[in-house]
Amino acid sequence: MKELHVKSLLPVRLDNYLMEQYPALNLGRLNKALRENKIKLNGKKQPLATRVQNGDVIRLFLNDDQLEKKPLPPAVFVYEDDDLIVANKPAGIEVDGPASDTLLKRVQATLSANGHSAQAVLCHRLDTGTSGLILLAKNKAAEHFLTEAIKARKIQKKYLCVTFGRPQPPVELMHDYLIKDAQRGVVKIVPSPCSGAKEVITGYETLAVSGRLALLEVELVTGRTHQIRAHLAHIGCPILGDSKYGNNTANRELHFKYQALCAWELRFPAQIEQPEFSHLAGRVFHAEKPWYCHQITDGTLR
């Protein structure tokens, strides 16, 4: 716990005062801390817009790691040229948002540290708990090319994942429909078209099995919210570590904090019409295989 005695000749907003004292704090962290009753002004919970003044006492129930501003870990670039970046996102960080540590912030910091412009734009997203390859554009032309290629399904995406349960048949191309519940932040798979449902196509191939678990290579044909996670859960084989659609008893037993899902491969089309991006034709990029893939293959994880 930190206790601050305000020294300010003029009233200042609580959030601004705290961010001035601790540069590592941002509005996202402050709002989270306030919701968790970890900020008290003169012994009471107060809105962040409250004006503090000389003599007020602020108590912060945060540890030093949350208050210290640490340098961001460098982003891992699988590929980089003058137009785009293929970055490898670790599980557990957001691609973007108010958090102090996101993939985009790591990429920008890495570019700056290398003496380059920090301009980079995300062209698609991954869930926080999913690791793997993300495409970022360095300029408007590359952003347009990549987003259009993804939208037209010209860039193929393959994933590796571990499921709790062995899917039957071992190889399948699944065609179903997805309904999004925005209020609850979840999606539901249904077998037939209905109001608000969008088609989802997910292919999988079983690469190895170990006890109750299976290692799959998954091809994302359509790209819907939580598609792979929900589609595999729908057939009774949820992804290990998935707290939203998975088996939480198994997740705890096997100590999985994040879903065992990695965006492993990005494949560019064999032919690209735009001359400035023709050097990418047929290129295939891979992330390093996560540790759990090897443990399924050798039978360590069961």
Rank of each mutant, 00 (worst) to 15 (best):
Met1Phe: 10
Met1Ala: 12
Glu3Ile: 11
Leu4Phe: 11
Leu4His: 02
Leu10Lys: 15
Pro11Met: 00
Val12Cys: 03
Val12Trp: 01
Asp15Phe: 00
Asn16Ala: 15
Tyr17Leu: 11
Met19Pro: 00
Gln21Val: 03
Ala24Trp: 01
Leu25Arg: 03
Asn26Asp: 11
Asn26Thr: 00
Leu27Tyr: 13
Gly28Pro: 00
Gly28Tyr: 07
Leu34Pro: 01
Glu36Arg: 14
Lys40Phe: 13
Leu41Ser: 08
Leu41Gln: 06
Lys44Asp: 03
Pro47Thr: 05
Arg51Asn: 08
Arg51Lys: 15
Val52Arg: 01
Gln53Asn: 04
Gly55Ile: 10
Asp56Ile: 04
Asp56Arg: 00
Arg59Met: 03
Phe61Met: 08
Leu62Met: 12
Asn63Pro: 06
Asp64Trp: 00
Gln66Val: 02
Gln66Asn: 09
Leu72Thr: 01
Ala75Met: 02
Phe77Asp: 08
Tyr79Val: 09
Tyr79Asn: 09
Asp81Ser: 09
Asp81Val: 10
Asp82Asn: 14
Asp83His: 15
Leu84His: 04
Leu84Met: 14
Val86Glu: 03
Ala87Gly: 07
Asn88Ala: 13
Lys89Cys: 09
Lys89Ser: 10
Pro90Leu: 06
Ala91Pro: 00
Ala91Thr: 06
Asp96Met: 09
Pro98Tyr: 09
Ser100Ile: 03
Asp101Ser: 13
Leu104Ser: 07
Val107Cys: 03
Gln108His: 06
Ala109Val: 05
Ala109Arg: 01
Thr110Cys: 06
Thr110Gln: 03
His116Phe: 10
Ser117His: 04
Ala118Tyr: 00
Gln119His: 10
Ala120Glu: 02
Leu122Ile: 11
Cys123Asn: 04
Gly129Arg: 00
Thr130Gly: 03
Gly132Thr: 04
Ile134Val: 15
Leu135Cys: 08
Leu135Ile: 09
Leu136Val: 09
Ala137Gly: 05
Lys138His: 04
Ala142Lys: 08
Glu143Phe: 13
Glu148Phe: 08
Lys151Glu: 15
Arg153His: 15
Ile155Asn: 02
Lys158Glu: 13
Gly165Thr: 10
Arg166Met: 10
Met174Cys: 15
Lys180Glu: 15
Ala182Cys: 11
Arg184Leu: 13
Lys198Asp: 10
Val200Cys: 12
Thr202Ser: 12
Glu205Arg: 13
Val209Ser: 10
Arg212Asn: 10
Leu215Gly: 06
Leu215Val: 05
Leu215Ala: 06
Leu216Cys: 11
Val218Tyr: 05
Val218Ser: 09
Glu219Asn: 05
Val221Asp: 07
Thr222Ile: 09
Arg224Thr: 02
Arg224Ala: 13
Thr225Asp: 04
His226Asn: 13
Gln227Pro: 01
Gln227Asn: 00
Ala230Ile: 03
His234Thr: 01
His234Arg: 09
His234Val: 01
Ile235Ala: 05
Lys244Phe: 01
Tyr245Ala: 14
Asn247Arg: 12
Thr249His: 12
Asn251Ile: 05
His255Ala: 14
Ala260Ser: 14
Cys262Phe: 10
Leu266Val: 07
Gln274His: 15
Pro275Tyr: 07
Pro275Ile: 09
Pro275Ser: 12
Phe277Trp: 11
His279Cys: 08
Val284Ile: 15
Glu288Arg: 14
Lys289Tyr: 03
Trp291Val: 15
Cys293Thr: 15
Ile296Asp: 09
Thr297Ala: 15
Asp298Ala: 05
Asp298His: 12
Gly299Cys: 08
Arg302Cys: 14
Arg302Tyr: 05
